[in-house]
């Protein structure tokens, strides 16, 4: 399937900042099911930037804005060729079976598992957990109670919480799982979902929608053991530490 995409990322600061070094993970990932045939990246209208790749093969752009400024904007657009969501890569699956900075296992999760009947097959286990999270939790757009513990306690949370919970549960039943960050159809912002390793392949599960990903266009920007490794923006600047990241855009299927 061919899709085109166009997204804008705007970081705004209430007071002006300077000596700003940024690193943006906004470039589509390249793997066996996703390849880029056209890509344009623009930072701050037309400021020079560099590109790199981290240990997960996530691509990023980085650079400096030295002068005082109150916003940083980036625009990406292009075309992608997507294949059905089953693939393998070079990374060791076991890396994604260990606890990571934001995802560990806790007592509340055990309680959640205790009231779930898990099937034998790995794939079915992942499906049941994905659906159960979808049924029991509510997506909200902002929260003051961060982290998995409060997600489990209040039964509501952000996109990341859904994915982190599924990752924690999958790892607990010995299924390697990682977080993906990117775009999906019909949403005007970024989305997160989970890739789980089974029978020699990575497969996609979306606990927010409660689905197994097949042919739906899910465009990955980055993956990692958890969100700490695939945030859109990381940066350092001199000024009051407060910023708002706004993302707008869309992906569309191209006619065959």
């Amino acid at each position: 399937m061919k899709v085109n995409f166009s997204y804008d990322f705007t970081l705004t600061f209430p007071e002006s900042v300077r000596d700003h070094r940024y690193c943006l993970r906004i470039v589509p990932y390249e793997n066996a099911i996703q390849s880029c045939s056209r890509l344009d990246i623009l930072v701050n209208a037309n400021t020079a930037f560099e590109q790199g790749r981290d240990g997960f093969a996530n691509r990023f752009v980085y650079g400096t804005i030295a002068k005082p400024h109150k916003s940083l904007s980036a625009h990406i657009e292009g075309e992608l060729e997507l294949s059905p969501y089953v693939y393998c890569d070079e990374e060791p699956p076991a890396l994604y079976n260990a606890p990571s900075p934001l995802v560990g296992f806790c007592a509340l999760m055990q309680a959640f598992l205790d009231e779930t009947t898990l099937p034998v097959s790995t794939f079915r286990k992942a499906v049941v957990l994905t659906q159960k999270i979808r049924e029991n939790f509510t997506l909200i757009e902002s929260t003051k109670a961060e982290g998995l513990e409060s997600f489990l306690l209040y039964k509501e949370g952000l996109r990341n919480d859904f994915s982190h919970l599924l990752i924690a549960l999958l790892r607990h039943v010995n299924i390697p799982a990682r977080l993906c960050h990117g775009f999906i159809e019909g949403e005007n912002k970024t989305h997160t979902w989970v890739e789980a390793w089974m029978d020699g392949d990575w497969r996609g599960f979306d606990p927010i929608k409660g689905i197994v990903i097949h042919d739906e266009p899910y465009v990955k920007l980055a993956h990692g053991r958890d969100f700490s490794e695939c945030a859109i923006y990381k940066g350092s600047y001199i000024g009051k530490r407060q910023h708002i990241l706004k993302i707008t855009g869309q992906i569309g299927r191209e006619e065959q």
């Binding site: 981290d54 240990g55 890396l95």
Partner: peptide, 12 residues
């Protein structure tokens, strides 16, 4: 992989 000292983002 379970060690905090391993930094996978610097693999390769």
């Amino acid at each position: 992989f379970a060690s905090k000292a391993y930094l996978p983002s610097f693999a390769h």
